[in-house]
Design a protein around this nucleic acid. Structure first.
Ligand SMILES: NC(=O)c1ccc[n+]([C@@H]2O[C@H](COP(=O)([O-])OP(=O)(O)OC[C@H]3O[C@@H](n4cnc5c(N)ncnc54)[C@H](O)[C@@H]3O)[C@@H](O)[C@H]2O)c1
Ligand SMILES: NC(=O)c1ccc[n+]([C@@H]2O[C@H](COP(=O)([O-])OP(=O)(O)OC[C@H]3O[C@@H](n4cnc5c(N)ncnc54)[C@H](O)[C@@H]3O)[C@@H](O)[C@H]2O)c1
Lengths: 256, 256
DNA sequence: CGCGATTTGTGCACGTCTTCACAAGCGCCT
DNA sequence: AGGCGCTTGTGAAGACGTGCACAAATCGCG
């Protein structure tokens, strides 16, 4: 894999760039840096220090430097990073230099919101097609796009060079939709349905599950509540269960 | 090791040992297990093996066992886990035995979808109030709830015992909204706006950023493409850096 | 031209997470 | 009752991620 290929410029059409294979944690943070960088650029900054960028992105500055070091050295000691250059570099690494075409399947409640969201366009993506299985929705126009029947997926996928599929159907339909997407060559899927998708190797799936996020928050709420309500065993109506709550050593903030 | 303590779980005979402080990674997976368990329960299963549950939740079985072991021993060797018991146990740990009240701020495109989503209710939450700053939206009914003006937050928060705040406003408004939420005692926030929130210690923030998810997928697409397209390397119009960009030729050896 | 102020890049130590492998426990069957 | 097969719970090892602390690099200035 690591071909020790010539480490030179990724740019300049012709040479296929040897992409450094970044730690997954780093990849997950790059978009955050990118957003912060765009804000800085809009605000007129030409350079930014690791400290400054880290602050804007909400991370530790050492972590940021290490992350950026993985894409090569683009900072100047004593000065910082060139904002515009870093934007280009990160966008290249993330594969955003082309405007990726996204297909959205399931134009219901959530799908409508997604289809109407302009945060896609401004961050490197283009919603290329909307699909639904419900005949009564087919033909509807949303944000300049017409809703097509899912059966048209193969044809449209070929036309539009779909790069990423977004699933916003009910959970029971998600697996079938995923298979349809994979069948037309989609190898990246963002899944909003609360279910596990099984896909062939080589296909990436990321999921967004709102309820999971809330439940994680709920856990921390529960824990915070049980810490403060500790002395009076289950006094308030907050915690349903009493419980021999032997709190271990935590240093979590108990502010306010 | 862990001794059973109170046999007074919600409804069933679940025992609740001390509230352990779980590894964050485990907490993030518990909701996944919970969903899988509910599916199993609906399908009539009374017990499930770690292998079976792990499959349904899309994780490694050893990891699942270790995760569950953190909440005490609730499996039976040679048999597996009692589905109903495990559901109760996880719901307790996640603090879902009470129906947490959620306040949604920003009833726009996305907010409408969230307000109409029944996946909240079925997974332990209750949307208790909707808020917006736009006077023309105030008064609108969505799914049986009236949209209130954000200024009413303090009063409503007191009435409804808001446990979690959800921010679905544009990014520029998010920080202010977060502060308003914190001011009325909310210590858990789910943020959909693409920006970093700064909050006091003790307040948990989770963010959901759709564009970030897409960009992560894009990275992997890019990577996959550069691997397979390696031999050709012709001037395919696909992967060229934007013209204006001076070649970032400053990159030096990476794998020193 | 050299010096001090500044900031990057990274070696290192530490903590967290994952995975394997297997002993111990449990139920069932004979 | 005893043995057998199945499954859990966990020790240990390794992979991965984080953050400190500091040398090296660069700039601005006198
Ligand atoms: N609404 C939300 O805020 C929200 C939040 C988080 C997760 N989700 C999840 O997102 C998904 C969609 O939610 P929703 O509220 O939009 O549901 P919805 O029922 O409003 O919309 C689902 C749409 O998918 C279409 N569909 C069904 N089967 C299909 C198929 N095989 N191919 C193509 N289209 C198909 C339906 O016709 C419908 O238009 C659900 O899985 C839901 O759990 C929704
Ligand atoms: N629509 C999507 O699919 C989507 C997807 C991902 C992220 N987001 C993000 O979610 C947020 C909302 O997106 P949207 O498409 O619903 O935007 P929107 O403009 O449709 O809705 C925003 C709503 O927030 C209200 N608002 C503004 N300032 C407020 C304040 N101070 N207090 C209370 N309410 C306020 C506005 O009146 C409006 O109703 C944005 O930050 C967006 O980037 C949206």
């Amino acid at each position: 894999m690591s071909q020790h290929r010539h480490p030179g410029a990724p740019g300049r059409a012709g040479a296929v760039p040897a992409l450094p294979d970044l730690p997954e944690a780093t990849v997950a943070r790059l978009p955050e840096y990118l957003r912060a960088l765009h804000n800085l650029a809009d605000a007129g900054h030409e350079t930014v220090s690791s400290e400054g960028l880290a602050g804007a992105a909400g991370v530790n500055s050492a972590k940021l430097r290490k992350d950026l070091s993985h894409l090569g050295s683009y900072g100047t000691r004593g000065v910082g990073y060139d904002v515009a250059l870093l934007i280009d570099q990160i966008e290249f690494v993330l594969g955003l230099t082309q405007r990726r075409a996204v297909a959205l399947v399931g134009v219901g409640n959530l799908g409508h919101a997604l289809a109407g969201y302009d945060g896609f366009a401004s961050r490197g993506f283009r919603i290329a097609a909307l699909f639904d299985a419900d005949a009564s929705r087919v033909g509807e126009m949303i944000n300049g796009l017409v809703v097509r029947h899912i059966d048209e997926l193969p044809r449209v996928a070929a036309e539009e060079a779909i790069s990423i599929g977004v699933i916003a159907t009910p959970a029971p339909a998600a697996q079938a939709v995923a298979e349809q997407l994979v069948a037309v060559g989609v190898t990246s899927i963002l899944n909003f349905a609360p279910c596990v998708l099984s896909v062939p190797d080589g296909v990436d799936v990321r999921k967004v599950d709102l309820a999971i996020e809330l439940q994680i928050l709920s856990f921390h709420e529960h824990r915070k509540a049980s810490l403060t309500a500790l002395p009076a065993a289950g006094g308030s109506a907050l915690t349903a269960l009493p419980g021999g709550l032997a709190t271990p050593d935590t240093q979590e903030a108990i502010g306010t």
